[in-house]
């Protein structure tokens, strides 16, 4: 069977799980969580960092559980889930920034001090990841949302646009502009 057939089967399976979960079947809901937990975790972690990610993911699935009966099926279930994850992450992010009071005082990613070995030698993979995450945190919300969904989670632009309720060309141009900013912020790591 081709890839399209597989996708249709997945969709059918998800629809059946959804119907069962809506009628109160706990195990069906658990299976839905199992299917989407990794993506939800990565999306909220992309916005908030791993420290707050599990708590935020819990809020996402609680909202999904509470909203299951109201889900009309106009969009794909996954699209709805990613939208809730993005909204929860953005709301928590705003709150966090308000609390820390650095909304407008974002500074560029710290650069290595003079005398330290160059970025290629010094930055291990973990450090590189941290630098990328810090750079993503400094992006404006609308850019960050696209970078997390497309760049980190690898969703197609069509799906990114559906999740964020924007047009595909808008999603593409936001991604291009976000990448420009990231290249500036990460210049040294990327060896520009």
């Amino acid at each position: 069977m081709g890839a399209t057939g597989g996708l249709t089967e997945d969709r059918d399976e998800e629809d059946s799980l959804l119907a069962r979960a809506r009628s109160g079947d706990g195990s069906a809901f658990e299976q839905l969580v199992e299917l989407h937990a990794p993506a939800v975790y990565r999306i909220v972690a992309g916005h908030l960092g791993e420290t707050d990610a599990e708590d935020a993911a819990q809020e996402v699935f609680t909202r999904i559980f509470l909203g299951l009966k109201g889900f009309k099926g106009d969009a794909r279930f996954a699209t709805w889930v990613y939208r809730i994850a993005t909204n929860v992450a953005l709301t928590r992010g705003k709150k966090k920034r308000r609390r820390l009071g650095f909304e407008n005082s974002a500074s560029p990613a710290p650069e290595p001090e003079a005398g330290e070995p160059g970025p290629h030698e010094s930055l291990a993979r973990g450090e590189q990841r941290d630098a990328v995450r810090r750079a993503i945190e400094q992006l404006p919300e609308e850019f960050r949302a696209v970078v997390v969904l497309r760049g980190i989670e690898g969703l197609p632009f069509e799906e990114v646009a559906r999740v964020l309720g924007i047009l595909r060309p808008t999603a593409e141009s936001r991604m291009a502009r976000a990448k420009e900013r990231l290249r500036t912020l990460l210049g040294r790591i990327m060896g520009d």
Binding site: V33, R42, E50, T62, V132, G151
Partner: peptide, 28 residues
């Protein structure tokens, strides 16, 4: 280094047993 690769590598690692914990707590 390629930015797309850097972004992909910045993906968070999903902790073990996450789905089970989330499924249990969401209904609590």
């Amino acid at each position: 280094m390629d930015l797309d690769r850097l972004l992909h590598e910045a993906r968070a690692e999903v902790p073990e047993g996450l789905a089970a914990r989330l499924a249990a707590s969401a209904r609590g």
